[in-house]
Amino acid sequence: MGGKNKVKNWVECFAFALPAIFFYCLFLVVPILSTVKISFHEWNGAAPYMKWVGLDNYRRVLHDPIFYKALGNNIIWILFTIFIPVLLGLIFAIILTQRFVKGKFLYRLTYFMPNVVSLVAVGIVWGWIYNPEFGVMGKMFRALGLNSLAEIDYLGDEKLVIWFLLIAGSWTCYGFNMVVFLAGLQGIDSTYLEVARLEGANPVQKFFYVIVPLLKGTIVMLVSNSLIGSFKVFDLIYVMTKGGPYHSSEVIATYMYNSAFGMNEYGYGSSLAVILAVIIAVCAGVFMKLTDKDNT
């Protein structure tokens, strides 16, 4: 009798989670497994059957200069977003916790705004800012007397395009970092700062020796978020340049999309997708380990 009740109880409990798990498996787990399967095949998307090619797609990835270009751009994206938006977020969060600052609500409201707007709209806005004909960027440089910088076709220059995309990308996310840091700072016991002040620490010392160590958990979290987010970046680049010109602003996600849905090479696109997923999973795993250690 007791055993039967136990089973009944378990079924009842599991039933609450079942619908979520069902859709999760149907639309997430099964597709990811299918991606792995397709990555071992050559397939144009229309043919009724796929040709098994084993590891050929992966071998091709390893000899593909565009893949390395895309990976390099992802790495640039990581380094830049860790330094600029995360650091900006931290600095602004610290400023906004100072007592003398007025109008905190206004700053918090507006800094986060770029984060909630559709990336298509962001892409159009920044496309105009960079526009060689009427863009504000060119005008600004011209007003500053930097004519050589004003002449650049910001989104058409193969060497520089990724950096200008990064500026637009950072614009969308620094407010997010700030909000998270603000929450982290609220959790700090103010007596630490009081002690530092009494000991005669200057603001720079306070920053490096008191605030940063106490915010370690938040910093690790946001750095890993930037890391994973940088590998996921897709919408903004696709909207603004589609990975061009000549693949110069390609990241793995756009290259994967272009290979599959642009070139009809679904097998090759799938192998890129698998590689992308593995990279992110490894990064996330490493950082979860790191944060776990900090918390315990």
Binding site: L28, V30, P31, T35, I38, G45, A253, G269, A273
Partner: peptide, 24 residues
Amino acid sequence: LVFKFLLLGMMIPINAMIIPLYYN
């Protein structure tokens, strides 16, 4: 255990499954 299995999905970018998703 089931919850951890569910959390794994948070690490996977949507780009990694759009090809089969489209065909499904």
